[in-house]
Design a protein around this nucleic acid. Structure first.
Lengths: 242, 242
DNA sequence: CGTATGTTTGACCGTCGTCAATTGTAGTGG
DNA sequence: CCACTACAATTGACGACGGTCAAACATACG
């Protein structure tokens, strides 16, 4: 049980290759063992399965070991707003901490392995490990920061800038996981991308086509290859006023 | 020092009329006393004065007793994005928790009285008051929720819906402070509103004019009277597809 | 009083949404 | 294995919303 595995993820926090990402704590071995008692690993969830629905009681946050998660919230009029895509090494589910109710729905975009971190037990443990709670506040602050980056993107940027930014963001986050930064599979549909970026499907599709004609990317449906990373990056960071 | 005052705000947390808002804790008197030792009340900051700049080391979060604060962040290209307006009873400054550096700049839109909550001392106190740290995580979660509402607004709504939503939001937040929900003074400029909502000044101005012609509001520069609150509300919550 | 800044209004135009048609892809069951 | 269907993606034509540019006016500040 404690021996290293050949899988990308291990079955405990000691061996997990992404522990420095999902929990970059300066923990001694004893602390890590105590943390270990809190984490629960469920069986993989399949594509389209829900992790939680909006309105569900808040019980846990989740770290992704593999796969991809989409979170979205639903307005009273029934329209949906995608609020985030989460990749391996990332944590989601904060949105339920006030009210003890989730505001978002979380759904698997593909087969996904999760570590569930039940929050009541987490609060027990963090009582004896203040650094843990502090760390979680940092993670929440990161969520605030990334939300504000999205706000800036939506408020200020053109369709091309938005799509380029998303591709660059995905690229960076995959690289951080020691995966290819230039070749990957989009876990989400064009419609999801459009919803997330405040664009229509048609516009997203057109931008993808334009990027291909500019030799910035190659794409075959969901398979993406970024053929000109600097070029795409410069598009993402606003071409500026000439 | 401990006697009640005639001011809207008191000079300690016991007497402060907004303590239930800025710190809605179920605290016994002893806990409140301990919290009291952490809070610092500075002299009022004047219009246009900065509370902190982007890049400043993160030391405190701030509760507003009176006045109004604007926070914004600056892109590498120099353009600014307003990330929030904060009114009495609200708390800002979370954005620095990771990195220990503020990502936003906070500036007073008018003369403003603040309670500064130094974070290092806060962490001391919260060690003996776990509920305090828990409460602060709730406040951060609220920030995440409101950011996501703004994301939805920017991604999905028309100019009229955005402006109506902001007015309704201000109205609700003022009402919560037992101030008039229908007559108030906008602390921010049209340019700030536009920047925040992802619109140009001209568009904001046109929407205000249109709202007046529809008898939804009366406005004389920054003085606003909402003359048809239900009507404005229904605009804010999307007229929907007919 | 003069300058700088904020606000309003108008005319024009570009980006992106809407509507529509077509093709490609995936999943289902005969 | 191949129809059949449902859904995803692409592309085109068109128009509207809101951005851009410009001018006029009001307001604040030294």
């Amino acid at each position: 049980m404690r021996s290293p595995t050949l899988n990308i993820q291990a079955n405990n926090c000691h061996n997990c290759r992404m522990s420095t990402l999902c929990l970059p704590l300066t923990l001694d071995v004893g602390s890590l063992d105590r943390l270990e008692t809190v984490i629960e690993r469920g069986r993989p969830v399949h594509k389209q399965q829900f992790i939680f629905h909006a309105g569900d009681p808040f019980q846990s946050v989740y770290a992704i070991r593999s796969g991809a998660i989409k979170s979205y919230c639903t307005s009273e009029d029934g329209s949906e707003q995608v609020t985030g895509f989460y990749l391996p090494g990332e944590i989601f589910g904060w949105d339920g901490i006030d009210n003890n109710n989730h505001k978002n729905t979380a759904v698997a975009l593909e087969t996904t392995a999760l570590c569930e971190i039940p929050f009541n037990r987490f609060e027990e443990v963090s009582r004896t490990m203040p650094i843990l709670q502090q760390h979680f506040m940092r993670l929440m602050a990161k969520e605030i920061t990334s939300d504000q980056e999205l706000i800036t993107l939506l408020a200020k940027s053109s369709a091309e800038e938005r799509v380029a930014s998303l591709l660059i963001s995905l690229s960076n986050r995959l690289k951080r996981q020691h995966l290819s930064a230039t070749r990957f599979r989009l876990p989400m549909s064009r419609a999801d991308i459009g919803n997330y970026l405040g664009l229509t499907v048609e516009t997203v599709s057109r931008v993808f086509s334009r990027f291909q004609s500019f030799d910035l990317i190659l794409c075959d449906k969901k398979e993406i290859e970024i053929t000109n990373l600097p070029g795409l990056s410069s598009l993402a960071h606003k071409p500026k006023i000439t």
